[in-house]
Design a protein around this nucleic acid. Structure first.
Lengths: 241, 241
DNA sequence: ATATAAGTGTGATTTAAATCACTTGAACGG
DNA sequence: CCGTTCAAGTGATTTAAATCACACTTATAT
């Protein structure tokens, strides 16, 4: 379990970093393994939400798709992240889908089993609340960024979040360790591919970002990006993708 | 504590409806009273988030304001609602403000006191999680509605939520029991007063809504509003303002 | 190596929404 | 009753972003 890997990554947090070793062992105890292949869904919109998922390996995108096929990516989860809801009422349903964008090893946690642990161990309950609070913080801060500062602000906010989740510090800037296509970014922002392309070209021209081998984005002027979305320097567990 | 007051209100839920009588008594035990007058703030953006608030009476708007003065209203809380975050880390801060839009009677709950109860009573922990999950659900569903269906969809979604929170069923439609100005609605949607005015006029012309005495909105054609924002009939605890 | 698909880059055009600039109306206090 | 303030309504204009259309580039697979 993470903690900020200083220098190596710009700063990569897993959302399970809120759990103590002790609490995490309880979770391990009730997990059973599952594999999900690239392109497959871990769960679908409207499925019964009676499980949590611990992502051991791979990548999961949480998406919401409209009837017309427009796709909004709400989160991208990585190794060490916990996925799902703790509705605690047995009848609640997901209102988004979870799609594997790489081959995944997942630990499945049954709601019922988790509830037992929460009942018995106050410590685990408190840590779960911290996790839930963080997740809500991510959603709320994205909401703010995507609503208030236009598409340019939305892109800049998203680049900062990507830097926090995928960035590696180098002497010349923060290099994203993964390639994101214009379409990927557009789906994170809720805009069109063309708009992303034009905005990125502009940022490149102004020397805010550069493109490395394989189209990987490197952030040169983080301060500019922060300015563009009135960054409030939220804690890193919230400022993520 | 609520439960759906059938017929009387269209359907008014409080977000504390997740708590059992028993759990709520524990909360009552650690609350101390506070009054907040109309226009005053219960807390400000960036204040330390070490308290929860139970709203006994009055109304609180949760808002986010940009440097340029643009205001986004995230939630409107009513009697019986619980306000705040359960970050559980003592250093977390609000990243929004809470403004009283009526004279309020509030019960203040100290984070520390609450944590003790959560530790001791698994039942309370589980109910708190349900509450947190609901709050997150509200945020997520608004995010979706405001991002994906344009300003028209955003307005229609907001009218549905207002109906759930303030609507009274009548023989001719759902009458909102409170007046909302064009500016109020604009701040809920993240748009301009003029745009709201034009969209509302249009809805009126098409017979979707009417204006009653005092400018109160009455919803005639709920199905139309649902269609406009691809309503998924979320549970009522989530489809609120 | 070459066909095929997937992604990028850009101009032109359309559409949605914000902004500006007023007018009208309603409500409130002295 | 009149001036002041706050909200509603609306035309004209500008700006932001989506959409359309297509050329070009880069991977990938047979």
């Amino acid at each position: 379990m993470g903690a900020c890997k200083q220098q190596q990554n710009f700063c990569s947090y897993q959302n399970t970093d809120v759990f103590s070793k002790n609490a995490f062992q309880y979770l391990e105890g009730i997990m059973y393994p599952k594999k999900v292949e690239t392109g497959q869904f871990l769960f679908l919109d409207h499925d019964t939400a009676d499980k949590l998922f611990y992502l051991r390996k791979g990548q999961i995108k949480i998406t919401k798709v409209t009837e017309e096929g427009k796709e909004l990516v709400l989160y991208i989860f990585q190794e060490g992240d916990l996925i799902g809801e703790l509705g605690v009422s047995s009848v609640s349903r997901y209102n988004y889908s979870a799609k594997a964008t790489r081959n995944c090893d997942v630990g499945v946690i049954q709601q019922k089993d988790l509830e037992t642990i929460i009942w018995q161990h106050g410590e685990v309950a408190v840590e779960f609340m911290k996790w839930m609070s963080n997740m809500h913080g991510i959603t709320r801060s994205k909401f703010r960024d995507l609503m208030l500062y236009g598409k340019k602000g939305a892109l800049c906010s998203t680049l900062i979040r990507l830097a926090n989740s995928y960035g590696k510090m180098t002497s010349t800037g923060i290099a994203l360790s993964q390639h994101f296509t214009n379409t990927d970014l557009a789906e994170l922002i809720g805009t069109s591919r063309e708009t992303v392309n034009r905005m990125l070209s502009q940022l490149k021209k102004e020397g805010i970002v550069t493109f490395e081998a394989g189209g990987m984005i490197k952030i040169i002027d983080l301060a500019y990006l922060k300015e563009a979305c009135s960054c409030e320097d939220c804690p890193l567990e919230i400022c993520r993708i």
